[in-house]
């Protein structure tokens, strides 16, 4: 199949057709948005699907560009309500302890970005890893590049990768506790460290600073894409 002469969109459609044909019975779902394709794969079929994606003659995704974890616990939650904020005020109106759904089986996801050099196409895979004890199969055997990316997702989100040869922390400090990119992990962290001259060593203590929200998170839900969200409050 030659894809050189096709435009970007036609190429995308060709890939979408191939993917639908290949993975219809696997329970995969194909999404198209912003000119990109996302294949949502059930966790138990991940390795099958990846193997086909890499080796099938019409797909040939030789390169794994990126693997990353996503925590959907706070998805779609705004930090303050614009309706009531006018009398509670900026900053004070921020909801500091949002109720996060921590055991939702769709809480954690792993996103894989694949690139096919042969056909010059990209594809994103998304796998939901579960909530309480997130775990997916490791793709290190298919793409060695996944090694460090999976270690990173484990470190930052606590997602376990079954079959990974060396699942150690990678970015955080030696002896770090917790998974810092989870939405229930505060931005300021849990502990701070300082040198203690009496004990003559570095000691860890609970953080002494207060979290601050300088710009609250605002979601203008009803505004469809392309309309102007800032029309409502002050433009009259």
């Amino acid at each position: 199949m030659s894809t050189e002469h096709l435009t970007r969109n036609a190429r995308l459609d060709a890939l979408a057709a191939t993917l639908r044909e290949q993975f219809a019975e696997h329970g995969c779902e194909l999404l198209e948005q912003f000119g990109e394709l996302t294949l949502v794969v059930p966790a138990e079929r991940l390795l099958d699907v990846c193997l086909t994606l890499r080796d099938h003659e019409a797909l040939r995704f030789e390169q794994l560009i990126d693997v990353c974890g996503v925590d959907y616990a706070a998805y779609g939650e705004s930090e303050w309500e614009t309706e009531t904020a006018s009398f509670t005020g900026f900053g004070r109106g921020v909801d500091r302890d949002p109720e996060l759904e921590l055991d939702d089986p769709k809480r954690f996801a792993v996103a894989y970005h694949l690139l096919s050099l042969a056909y010059n196409r990209r594809l994103r895979l998304r796998v939901h890893a579960g909530g309480a004890q997130p775990m997916v199969d490791s793709v290190v055997d298919l793409w060695p590049a996944a090694n460090w990316f999976e270690r990173e997702a484990f470190d930052l989100y606590g997602i376990l990768f079954r079959g990974h040869p060396d699942l150690r922390r990678i970015l955080t400090d030696y002896g770090f506790v917790g998974h810092p990119f989870r939405k229930d992990f505060p931005l300021i962290g849990q502990v701070e460290m300082r040198y203690d001259p009496e004990q003559a060593r570095v000691v860890y203590e609970p953080v002494s600073i207060e979290p601050r929200v300088l710009v609250p998170r605002v979601i203008r839900g009803e505004a469809p894409a392309g309309s102007d969200p800032s029309q409502e409050p002050g433009d009259a």
Binding site: Q33, I65, D66, H113, V215, I219
Partner: peptide, 28 residues
């Protein structure tokens, strides 16, 4: 505010492919 969804955009940085993957839930 951006429309909800996810994008990946990459450029050829001097060292290789530098990409940004953004998941948006419609917030600012």
């Amino acid at each position: 505010c951006t429309p909800p969804g996810e994008v990946y955009a990459a450029v050829e940085a001097p060292k290789g492919e530098f990409g940004c993957y953004i998941v948006s839930d419609g917030a600012n």
